[in-house]
Design a protein around this nucleic acid. Sequence first.
DNA 1: CGCGCTTGTTCAATCCACTGAACAACCACC
DNA 2: GGTGGTTGTTCAGTGGATTGAACAAGCGCG
Lengths: 265, 265
Amino acid sequence: MADSRTPRSAEGLGSSSPAPAVTRAAAVMDALAEAPSGRLTLSDLSRELGIPKSSTSNLLLALEEARLITREGADFSLGRKLVELGAAYLSRLDEVQEFYKFCEQAPTLSGETVRIAMIDGDHIIYLARYEGHPAVRLTSNIGDKMPLSLSAVGKVLLAQLHDHDIEAMFPDDVELPVMTPKSLRSAAELKAQVAAIRKQGYALEDEESTLGVVCLAVPVPTHGAHGPSLGLSVTALKATFSEEQAALMVKELKELAHSLGNPMG
Amino acid sequence: MADSRTPRSAEGLGSSSPAPAVTRAAAVMDALAEAPSGRLTLSDLSRELGIPKSSTSNLLLALEEARLITREGADFSLGRKLVELGAAYLSRLDEVQEFYKFCEQAPTLSGETVRIAMIDGDHIIYLARYEGHPAVRLTSNIGDKMPLSLSAVGKVLLAQLHDHDIEAMFPDDVELPVMTPKSLRSAAELKAQVAAIRKQGYALEDEESTLGVVCLAVPVPTHGAHGPSLGLSVTALKATFSEEQAALMVKELKELAHSLGNPMG
DNA sequence: CGCGCTTGTTCAATCCACTGAACAACCACC
DNA sequence: GGTGGTTGTTCAGTGGATTGAACAAGCGCG
């Protein structure tokens, strides 16, 4: 595999962590998650993270004992406990439960593919997916991440941030990730869209991440200071996408967003 | 909340871990996952895990920095990164992808609620769920755990283990968890069922975890030494459950299990 | 208000986890 | 087989993480 010359030191900069072992352990899990094959050996990890082999070995032993990772012969991969913990996190979000209920009984949305996502650094992360009919079978799964600039939810959540935060994340000379010919290229384009989204209250993604597929998204108003902002999106095939249908979907999305934003029984 | 008098020391026994900080950090996440509300304060954690407050504080800081947990005012809860990591784990299991594909095009299963699960200590953990029609809407989610003795998949996976392992997990005087009047009560009953399951090649759960609901399950043959064993199950309403339908479902489940067990393109 | 009980944060001394070098095994390639 | 490159494990010394006591801040109560 060539050789990934990226000894990205696990230490962030002011390399002092209140509990270095924990920070390094987290870096190990990150590395495993990002590894294409999902499997790395002790030496791989030691090299990539810049941690001495002996220390890495200790970390791996401890992580394995906690079932956060698994050893399979010589190489390590993520452990099942992570699925449990991730599920535990999701089960605490009442929004997810209500999301499903609403989708099922919504006139238009009940037949569509709807998702709820959350902003997470400079990406969004999908929390749940409702699939009304399998016409559009998405390749994305719960827990998957997407760049902000490439998805309708990403853009709508970006629009909720303060301008100076946006500026910090997207200076004028950034290179945006590109997935299709229609993906946004420049920070200027992105900021123009953000302005438009703020006016109209929803975001549109027009084949920017997948050709033939469009997406609509609205933000969920954050009730109180309770965590980061959520967003909702519908996905449809561009071929079967009409203005009137879009209007209906946006309307229902906004209803759902409103009911998620105002906690109730 | 009464007061949970369970200062379950984080240290397992031979309290020596090759990287104590990591072990303790894992214990912190466990505690957060198990806490009914999902939120605990520094003092809660310090008390429950028997870790000095100052050390706990450091752990929490490091965990927060890694986004493995989140601080919300005074109390802590699990972090979003866990969803990512859990998803990363699942995305590596090709079985899950093929599971979905197969369910969609299977004559009988395509209309049912099918799940794939994995053995995880003395529990099973659900990895994916296919929902053909929303007749039976399950309350369980991906990542949820269930005792072995209470589910069809649990029993079928138990039947795959060696007798002495079963004996170790279920000595004759264990108290089994009970969820309905029809739940198995004694280890003897369980072992009798295991014997039967080995003969017939599938397991049946008859209202043992939820009244009105039945389950069928088959094991997935482990190809190679590749990880722990998987199991498949169909869930149906007892009211609409017939012998002939059961036979069809078991047949298709076995086909799916076979194709999962023999990796292919 | 003052008291008792929490809570979380600070800090210097100690102990233990981390380190690096030396080790044994292994594989690939002449 | 010899050789240079791995791999992962072992172990004693040391530097830094961990600790507990002392701290400040908050809360309920009489």
